[in-house]
Amino acid sequence: MDERERSKLFEQTVLPHLDAAYNLARWLAGNDHDAQDVAQEASLRAFKFFGNFRGENARAWLLTIVRNTFYNWLQKNRRQEMAGELDDEALAVEDAAVNAEALNLRLADAAAVRRAVEELPVEFREIVVLREMEGFSYKEIADLSDVPIGTVMSRLARARKRLQKRLAGEFKPGGQR
């Protein structure tokens, strides 16, 4: 395949997923400027490594690269946000049921939902995007994020618990904002 054909094939198979790439980058990086940088760099890396793409799932493949690009970027630019402090004592406390009425009220407020997701630690934001916005299965997320399926499930459960508690007004991350 010559370079032009390769580029055309890339445009047809991978570029249609640029929205997904940007959306993930945007949720991870938290602002448009950094998200565009990450999504652009990831797209160009994807093109460079397009030869390794085995034609399975272009969207998952591209998002794997976005994810890696983002964590490299994070390490360089905002080390303090790196993973590691996912132990949420506030949640380890009995996972009593949340107040459904309060929860439903806040869920109707899109801005409140958005803020609650933005306040999640980065790994939790990632899994929420992959599962709820991209609709990937547990298995696909496990492959994409390179963690065991059990980790996917427990992370997702914890992310959801946090969101529910936050939205129902029972949990404030890291003090007041």
Binding site: L18, Y22, Q36
Partner: peptide, 26 residues
Amino acid sequence: LKKALQQDAHYFAAPTELRRRVKAEL
């Protein structure tokens, strides 16, 4: 919760500017 997160409002579409730059680079 799932339903609230799946709303279109939460999905960030790629800005035209980004699409243009990526294509130009390619």
